[in-house]
Design a protein around this nucleic acid. Sequence first.
DNA 1: CGGACTTTGTCATCTCACTAGAAAAAGTCC
DNA 2: GGACTTTTTCTAGTGAGATGACAAAGTCCG
Lengths: 393, 393
Amino acid sequence: MTGRPENAHQARLLRLLRDKGGRPRAELGDVVGLSRSRLFVELDRLVGCGLVERAAPAASRGGRRSGVVRLSTRLRFAGIDIGATSIDVAVTNAELEILGHVSAPCDVREGPDVVLGRALAMAEKLRGEGLFDELHGVGIGVPGPVGFRDGVPIVPPLMPGWDRFPVREVVGRQLGCPGLVDNDVNIMALGELHAGSARSVHDVLLVKLGTGVGCGILIDGEIYRGASGSAGDIGHVRVDDDGPLCVCGNTGCLEAYFGGAALARDATAAARSGRSPYLAERLDQGPALTAADVAAAAAAGDAAAIRLVREGGRRVGQVLAGVISFFNPGLVVIAGGVARLGHPLLAEIRAVVYQRSAPLATGNLPIVLSELGDTAGVIGATRLISDRVFSAS
Amino acid sequence: MTGRPENAHQARLLRLLRDKGGRPRAELGDVVGLSRSRLFVELDRLVGCGLVERAAPAASRGGRRSGVVRLSTRLRFAGIDIGATSIDVAVTNAELEILGHVSAPCDVREGPDVVLGRALAMAEKLRGEGLFDELHGVGIGVPGPVGFRDGVPIVPPLMPGWDRFPVREVVGRQLGCPGLVDNDVNIMALGELHAGSARSVHDVLLVKLGTGVGCGILIDGEIYRGASGSAGDIGHVRVDDDGPLCVCGNTGCLEAYFGGAALARDATAAARSGRSPYLAERLDQGPALTAADVAAAAAAGDAAAIRLVREGGRRVGQVLAGVISFFNPGLVVIAGGVARLGHPLLAEIRAVVYQRSAPLATGNLPIVLSELGDTAGVIGATRLISDRVFSAS
DNA sequence: CGGACTTTGTCATCTCACTAGAAAAAGTCC
DNA sequence: GGACTTTTTCTAGTGAGATGACAAAGTCCG
């Protein structure tokens, strides 16, 4: 019935239709560099195997109206973003537009059986809503290093019990479609590439400031994973000789200074010690403090909160300055829960980076906040698997 | 007469013959995945245009002896490595084996006219020795950032007067062959990839500790240059909040602590202050102190020299630890003049990196010294241009 | 309404890269 | 000298892909 592209042309056509939407057939020829006759043959085959369908013809441009083709509206991709403290599951159409999205808090430390069970239950809920017309693939992000080829986490520090657990196999079998697993930071980067701040940029750095601190690397629009799949691990770069003890065992790591847990810890301390009346009031009102609270406090002029943002931004900036000098990206995107600190944080990061990085590397380097926020992960996950499904062989 | 490959098959064949040497024709088919008949057609064309020639047939393996083909022995490539304080020019055959090599001290700050004039005179000397049979290309390395597409240096800090000077055009026209210009660190990395420590490794970091400190990045065997061509600039990463003033205007840069100039400065200070009797004696004997002197002093047990090596290695290791966590290379090669400090330096770097980098990234990460030493640059330069010449279109 | 013009879709034909397989050539081994 | 192997050459066939003629379906204008 529905199949996979048979050759590179078909793969290119599918990705083009995914990224640019439905198109008149006659236009496509120029874009992919094929003659009409050949192009129509390939398109007919794609229609034949159910991946592409014909839509109502476009308005005339002075001659015969052109037949429009688009990706089949029945195609679906699923994205599962497993964070340290939450699960997001979404279903998209072939153009990776979200049709359904559910989110739930969940501690990844409960282990793969519990967490994946919950994620799959969320997916089944979406299936129950009739959203799984023809599921062609599922992308999965997990908060730790991944052996990409096998689709298994590899000694993930934040995920006890997940080491070498066959995530791809379990999820793929359960949903009955091909799957791919990658680090959550990498898929967020893909998400921003597909639909967010990083559209049409080649070399991108996505810096995630969340429970963990890490960074996704895109080179020529593709994830760079490094020799053993752990590339982008900047959370444990030293920012000071002495400093708080980190989960990794070293001291002075960026994550121990300014990860989500560190920020909550410092904010709570500021509230309790009386240095921050604003945060103290918040703390009394209810749940534990988060980055959003610190952001509100800073916006309200709370001195202690402003200082937290400043110092955190400075330390992130120090690490980024080195990374940017080394990698010379075309764009840096700041994402993750701590990025809710917003523009004050961004301003501090920019100041340090522009001062300390090589001038050539920062000459026209935008440093921006994530556009997609919480949906970057799931969108990126579907992009990951759709890149694979829409590729030849 | 002699031309360029017409298609991707021919390009692959040429690179294969370059990297693995001459081969029986029958063997080649399996390697490039072509049928015999097709392969022989392409080979005949390459022979026809003078790039490939037939050699004496190989010994029989139980049947008819196979005809051997190899790259034409008349083909030549030239490599020009312009360092901060020296020029190296070499000519190689098509397999990038050095046939002639001349080296001369030269201060790059004398400007492009003087320096390139000298380099071209050195090349003409090699031509005079009959080494330019059929020059097919010249690769050029310069000690600063390069706009690769245009072949011009771009605001190079160590090279006043070179900004946007048309190096590729001038050298290419003078030698009458295509040319390519790149950063000297990048071409050193290519050199180690081709014939040195980095053979058959995909993701490589070449760290050059010389007058400048920088690093060449190879991803899948190709140079990664970044969005604006300045990738790998780790010389100006901050290692301490305060520290010596650097040429870049900031303080605490790695290069200001442990570049060639810094090491000479510190060694001389140690000699003059009496902390190092060994270095003081050397200094009296003649020319200014270099890394080789410090290495000898350390080997002789001179405490001050050992301390210089230790502290330098520690600082390099600190920066590398961050870079390695981020980039997760499969190999790190230490090169440049300061690398003459040898294994004591290496030991210190390794200790810091293995302690501070992400365990997954260092799990099986070799950190080694350059195999090629002073010839890495010129070999890499010829590799750069031969990659271009041996590629289709 | 009907021609002039334009754009899209279809079809037959031609070229060329490439494979497969037969047959010839050049060896070795007994 | 024959049996067997390996390389080389040659021929025919397949399929991707381009090209260009022609039909189909529009618009525009008198």
